[in-house]
Structures are given as structure tokens and as C-alpha cells.
Amino acid sequence: MQIMMTFHEPEAEFAKRANPAEAEAYWGGWMAYIGAMNAAGIVVSGAGLMPPDTATTLRLRDGARQVQDGPYADTKEQLGGFMILEVPDLDTALDWAARAPAAAAGSVELRPVLPPMPNG
């Protein structure tokens, strides 16, 4: 099965990326984690994302575009990146999720990926 892990981080985690005193440890943790998943051969795809203050949200209402600065929802934790994995079951995915730096600092959501559409 394919499953998507989305990493949700609090503001303090995003702040570490730009703080010279913390950036090395922050990125080192993610590099090691993603390296381990690559070594296990389970990665389908994935990416880290720029911080939420770079986000732009669009809604189409009555045919008109409503473009807004910032992420779609103003929550304590924001999407920081995602990985799509090929794993046998949820328990295996949970074991990988538990090793993510975001698991301790924020949260990791796991969602099964829809299988390809029949006429896709």
C-alpha cells in the first residue's frame, strides 16, 4: 500500500530552520530520518516545504477568486513537508512516523493514498 505521511510542526520548529544556533541540528535530524527511509527503499516521493508564512491560499467563490496571504487554516501546527511511502500495512508506517523529528515536536498524520483511477 502507499501511504502519505504529512509532518505538522509548531512555529518554534520552523523558527529553528533560520536560527544559526539550531539550524544544523534541525536539518541533521531530518536528513538522517529521510536517509534511513531511502536506505530502506520505501520512499515513493516526498518534499519539505517552505514555512507557512510563504503560503498563499485561493478560494473560488461565485466565480471570483479570493486570494489570501497565509495557509488555509490558522492552527498551532502547520504542514512542513510530506512523504509518500510504499509499506505493507499501517503498523509499519506508524513505526516510521514515530521516528520523524516532527513526531516529538508536533505531529505526523498518516493517510492511505487513493489507488490509481481506472481510466487514469
Binding site: 500500500m1 501511504i3 505493507p88 500495512d89 499501517l90 503498523d91 498518516l110 492511505p112
Partner: peptide, 14 residues
Amino acid sequence: RAAHIPFALPDTRD
């Protein structure tokens, strides 16, 4: 079914 929760006994750690 959708999340593939395994039909298995947990390992010793869990």
C-alpha cells in the same frame, strides 16, 4: 480496510 491496519498480533515491544 482503507488504512491497512494489519490483522496480526502486536510485536513484543507494542
